[in-house]
Computed example of a mutant assay.
Amino acid sequence: MQPFKLTIFRQSRVLFGLFLLPFAFIGLLLLGFQIGSSILGLFFFVIYLLLYYYFTVGHLTISIKNEHLHFTWKKKVVFNYKQVDDLPLANIRTIVIDNGRFLRKLITDNKTVFINTTKVDPNDNLKLIHFLQTFAKNNNIRVISSWRNWADNGYLKTAYKINIASIVIAFIIVCLFIARKGFSSWQLSVFLLFIPQLFLYGQQMNLEMKEDNSK
């Protein structure tokens, strides 16, 4: 069977980079001011973004050999991903797929293989998902969403409470910005971009918890 070439963004690396993002932006701008050029500070920030992309992205080829999934990472100069051992198809118990388009995890009895595909170059990604869904249907393997996986592990209710707290804090910050600077503040626009996503996450988690309670 033809190998599947995937573009991967590992979630832990994405979150780490996002955590550093505001500090990098402010710090590099201040560095630019110290040097005497805000444009130079912005240039340094662009370099940071390029390094962030290089740090998070990975190119993974998955091939099927002798009823095993074989994983091969494309080598980078730095920030390489850890090699994944071959995985027998018969050992897969659960496949985590979101929205029918994003392969997140392959779960066996004793380990989890994290994949986390993206919208970049989706063709092979969708072909692999179709193969895995067909394989799962024929072999009585669970195909679930990430929220269901969180619920199975007992994390969903805690995540839901954190999400509600985040929405409340975001609204308080927005109100403070409006009171102090009005609606023209660019910081306000940044917060308003995140709030709808938090509501969407909350709705998805709530539906999953209702499904749990109805069982």
Rank of each mutant, 00 (worst) to 15 (best):
A136I: 02
N80W: 10
S166Y: 11
N80I: 09
L103V: 12
A170M: 09
K119F: 12
L87K: 09
K82M: 05
K82I: 11
N213H: 09
N99W: 01
T158L: 14
L198P: 05
N125G: 12
V168H: 04
F194Q: 10
R142F: 15
F177K: 04
N125W: 01
D152E: 11
R180S: 08
T118W: 04
V120L: 15
I141V: 13
F183C: 04
R142Q: 15
H130E: 13
Q83C: 05
L87V: 10
A136K: 05
I97P: 07
I141S: 01
L176M: 06
G182R: 07
L128T: 02
L106Y: 09
I169G: 10
P196K: 08
I115C: 00
E211N: 14
L126K: 03
R104K: 15
S184V: 11
Q133Y: 00
L87E: 07
L126A: 04
F194K: 05
I115D: 01
K119P: 04
S185W: 07
L176E: 08
S184E: 10
I107N: 00
K105P: 06
I164W: 09
L207P: 00
P196H: 03
G100A: 03
V143S: 09
Q197H: 14
V113M: 01
W147E: 15
Y201K: 13
N116M: 06
E211H: 12
I95E: 03
F114P: 00
A179F: 10
D109A: 15
F114A: 11
V190R: 06
S214T: 09
Y155T: 05
N213C: 10
L192R: 00
F102I: 13
I95D: 05
L198K: 01
K161R: 15
K127H: 12
L188M: 01
T158E: 08
Q187M: 13
D121K: 14
T112D: 07
Y201I: 15
A151M: 12
S146T: 14
N139Y: 01
G182L: 02
S184H: 10
N153W: 00
D121G: 04
T94P: 01
R93Q: 12
I144S: 04
G154Q: 07
G100I: 06
I92F: 01
G154M: 05
K111A: 08
T108I: 07
D98Q: 03
K119Q: 14
